[in-house]
């Protein structure tokens, strides 16, 4: 498996909306905490250390 960096999310505008909505009304601290939890949940779902390493690299 390789990190998929091609468009993969159906209805990207809808997802983006949901992401922003999740942060609606939060303070900066609350948003930071939410982002951290989200990263950990998604990372666990992926699980594959090689893909996670690629993702860290792609984000950096």
């Amino acid at each position: 498996m390789q990190l998929n960096t091609q468009p993969n999310i159906p209805d990207p505008d809808g997802f983006y909306d949901e992401l922003l909505a999740a942060h609606q009304g939060l303070t900066k601290d609350q948003s930071d905490a939410l982002n951290a939890r989200l990263i950990l949940i998604l990372a666990n779902h992926i699980g594959d250390r090689d893909i996670l390493r690629e993702a860290l690299k792609a984000a950096g």
Binding site: D32, A33, A36, R37, I39, L40, I41, N44
Partner: peptide, 16 residues
């Protein structure tokens, strides 16, 4: 922030 995110998640989610 990450440390506390792990602790928060660990209450309900085994993976953390």
């Amino acid at each position: 922030i990450f440390r506390n995110a792990v602790l928060t998640l660990a209450r309900d989610h085994a993976f953390a």
